[in-house]
């Protein structure tokens, strides 16, 4: 794949895998209203993933469609960060994951609007409005749970603690991104880290939560190294398409 295709695929894989996780809340969220909210967020991400995967396939020029890329790649070919594949856990874990990822995605898409690649700029321009809402949703809940009852505080803190080892990977750069960023095409994730820290720290402080100091950190998602949960996620996501190739509604 050419570098731009790989970059589009990374952005698309992040969105696609988180969509799959959020869809697992369908019919199981703590409240009907929250069920709709989480799956709406998932649908926004699915829309982003579809455009980005299609674009990656188009750039690759080997005739792979969005479906081929979503359903027929194996675990080692997925380039999402490990944060988005982490299991939903309880509502606190899900909200923690949403907060950490959505703020990151908002900042990346925000800068990507100025990309010299018109397709990426257009995707970012549309997505940034959607993700602003995802951030708001996660911030609202983080504040309420963190600064709520003793139990909600403990669960929210546990969620933040569980997801924090996956944060460092978000801001990792490599030669591919560095070159694309220097050419004005991509956003170097390291460049948004200070703003991410400021924004997330402010929410944590408001929510009476403590910023964790993790003893380990995840790495490798961008090069296809995933946590043990990824295989199960893909099995569920890809099963139908692989059992019935070409099936349509």
């Amino acid at each position: 794949m050419i570098p731009l295709a790989t970059y589009a695929l990374r952005l698309g894989d992040d969105a696609l895998v988180l969509t799959q996780r959020l869809s697992e809340w369908s019919s199981r969220a703590p409240e009907l209203e929250e069920d709709v909210a989480l799956t709406n967020i998932g649908l926004d991400l699915l829309g982003q993933a579809r455009v980005l995967l299609s674009y990656a396939g188009e750039l690759e020029g080997e005739g792979r469609t969005e479906d081929d890329l979503a359903y027929l790649r194996d675990e080692r070919e997925f380039t999402n960060v490990q944060l988005v594949e982490q299991p939903n856990g309880d509502f606190g874990v899900t909200i923690a994951r949403q907060l950490l990822f959505s703020v990151y995605q908002l900042l990346v898409y925000g800068d990507l609007r100025a990309s010299s690649d018109p397709t990426l700029a257009a995707v970012a321009g549309k997505a940034v409005k959607e993700v602003a809402y995802h951030v708001d949703h996660a911030e609202q809940w983080t504040r309420r749970l963190g600064d709520g009852t003793e139990e909600s505080h403990d669960r929210m803190q546990a969620g933040i603690d569980a997801m924090w080892p996956f944060v460092a990977e978000l801001f990792e750069s490599d030669d591919l991104v560095a070159e694309l960023a220097a050419a004005g095409v991509a956003v170097d994730p390291a460049s948004v880290q200070a703003e991410w820290d400021r924004r997330v720290d402010a929410v944590l402080a408001d929510a009476t939560l403590t910023r964790p100091t993790p003893t380990w950190r995840a790495r490798g998602g961008r090069s296809g190294v995933h946590s043990e949960h990824m295989g199960f996620l893909l099995a569920e996501m890809q099963h139908l398409h692989r059992s019935h190739p070409g099936a349509t509604w």
Binding site: E31, E33, A37, H137, Q140, R144
Partner: peptide
């Protein structure tokens, strides 16, 4: 709809 407070009611 059901919501715990006004802000979340608006979002729901």
């Amino acid at each position: 709809l059901h919501a715990p407070d006004a802000e979340l009611a608006l979002r729901n």
